[in-house]
Amino acid sequence: MAITFANVSFAYPSGWRAVDDVSFTVKEGERLAIVGQNGAGKTTTVKLMNGLLKPTSGTVTVDGVTTAERTTASIAATVGYVFQNPDDQIFASTVRDELEYVPRYRKWDDAKRDERVGRAARLAGIERYFDSNPNDLPLVIRKFVAIAAVLVGECKYIVLDEPTAGLDRPGQRRLVSLIDQLESEGVSVVTITHDMRFVAQTFKRVIAMANRRIIADGDCASLFASDELLRQASIRRPELAQLVRDLGLSDRAYRLDEIAALIPDNR
């Protein structure tokens, strides 16, 4: 079971080609980061995963069925997408209403509804905002409301579009523990982010995009080792990876523990 992109291209009705000949696979239970410059095609790519957009050419297959053959609503039960801007997603006037939308839509009984809504709110750390109007909450809390609303659906694949933008350290810790929890339950998590420190600490596999195409798909160390790939994708090495590279100690080390081990003695 997997999401598979085979030579996928997408052009908006205006003719603007946002994604060009992209191929990759996200396996069930796998976590993956997508990085790259603003406008590289990252958001378009993930919107193709859950059928919000359908390819202009090529095929996107979710668990064996192409998205072209399915309605967006039916794909959304398998692939959950959390919008970059929570205000594009949130529409209810209380957090509880927002989280109970999926249970109502799928006609779950009350027990199932309460269990799943409660669990999603706990994972996202927003239980105490149940009765708040999302519009009264700070942007970062709204982002976690948007995440919780998608978690309720218990999708096999979850896509987070720039969840780290503007996030503080407690928020990042919550996000990482949420991703860890989802992984332990066999859920795939695909995350778009610009934060390389977060990528280095949280992901092994990373896809880099530039100019509508995938330019790298592999482990963090290989991406951070290549000046050329980083330049094309407009990204930077984490500070410590750059430091040990400048010192000539390693091209591939990026984690604090491995870098600490490489630092020569202070004699």
Partner: peptide
Amino acid sequence: DVPRPEVTELALALQGTGKAFPSLPITR
């Protein structure tokens, strides 16, 4: 509960070892 610069974190991790920095750096 805010993060430090990465190089400061590294230097703090090495404090008290044979690899310690002479003083804590804040930039690369």
